[in-house]
Design a protein around this nucleic acid. Sequence first.
DNA 1: GCAATCTGATCGAGCGCTCGGTCAAAAAAG
DNA 2: CTTTTTTGACCGAGCGCTCGATCAGATTGC
Lengths: 211, 211
Amino acid sequence: MNQTADIPTQIKDPNLVLQRRRQIVDASVKLFVENGFHKTTTRQIARATGFSIGSLYEYVASKEDVLYLVCDAIHAEVEASVAKILSDASQGREALSEVIREYLMICHRMSDHILLMYQVTQFLPPQWKKKVLENEIRITGIFRDVLRHAAASGDLPMLDEKTAELVAHNISVLGQAWAFRRWFYTRNYSIEDYIAFQTKTIFSIFNGQSE
Amino acid sequence: MNQTADIPTQIKDPNLVLQRRRQIVDASVKLFVENGFHKTTTRQIARATGFSIGSLYEYVASKEDVLYLVCDAIHAEVEASVAKILSDASQGREALSEVIREYLMICHRMSDHILLMYQVTQFLPPQWKKKVLENEIRITGIFRDVLRHAAASGDLPMLDEKTAELVAHNISVLGQAWAFRRWFYTRNYSIEDYIAFQTKTIFSIFNGQSE
DNA sequence: GCAATCTGATCGAGCGCTCGGTCAAAAAAG
DNA sequence: CTTTTTTGACCGAGCGCTCGATCAGATTGC
């Protein structure tokens, strides 16, 4: 699950690696959100983390490694949050609206991070970029599964596979849109307004479905 | 309208400036789309444009200037396309579905450019960044107006202002999503599939409205 | 012949990353 | 228990290089 293991290190003690990398990620997220990836220097990262440039490179082989650690951590947090919803969720219609609500709340809470992810994915080496995109698909897949289950339990009309997948993507995208367009939305709407509207929009897809 | 005038140059002949900058933009768009803004060097830009690094800096004071010229050009193209739709469009329901279709086709045709704009806005100096965001709002405003007109002509249920604006944003966002998630969508869907689905989604919002 | 335009060698700040070295603490030896 | 040796986390000056930007001189066109 956690990709951290893929990144080589000079340090022998695995627990220390985990702890230090957590420090690195915490410091870097903050710096990247504030100044962007390119304007952040490795020295800044080291300083903010609380050790020297040399030590930084004991735990990481390149600046891109840091970027990947950051992306991985953000995804892990989003996914953990979404997974938590699922374990608590009810069945059928209820489950869907709860998942939508909680997902949009996550996007609200983590809008800085979501924005960062989008700005930054392009700078990852190809194989890691691929993993980030796979994470994206996996989260969308969760929504698709909720739709499937609700349909299977007869609580919502069955959508064909392809349509269900598009609905799932719409949920993902409209959550991220709250982060992208925060500068506009927050002038006119609360997150509750937004949740109410998008929930209604998603459910209205089902209304015309049985015709 | 065209912001080109804002950017200082050493060259006396304004027509030459226009022509050369067009060359610069054409070459740069290609390079930026392929390699991104940061990985593209000023030397590459000069070479691709067909003159020396020195000459480039006769027409432009910085690399950021090039970026702004590029954004401005893309912006102009999108705007021209959207404006063209409006002049051709019918009334009421028809107008809405036509506008959705054409807008999504623009997003399809210009997906590289839309992706580029999003990746690159963050590197613009604040006042130019602001202009890009204003443009974003203006395009969304066009959709809102189409919704208003359709409602006024009685062909669609009236939405309150705030809801109409959210619907308009959804159209904008879902168009851009086709560009962002092209890597996934194109594996499973044609742009026609996508248009059909999103059109249905938007219209279904109106179905539950009169209740 | 003089402006206007173009050229490309040259500059130098800034950055990612390296590598020889230090030192505290653990392990081994006596 | 004391001394010696080994270990490995931590350090930071500095290397190598990139790349945006400059400018003095060459070329062109009127």
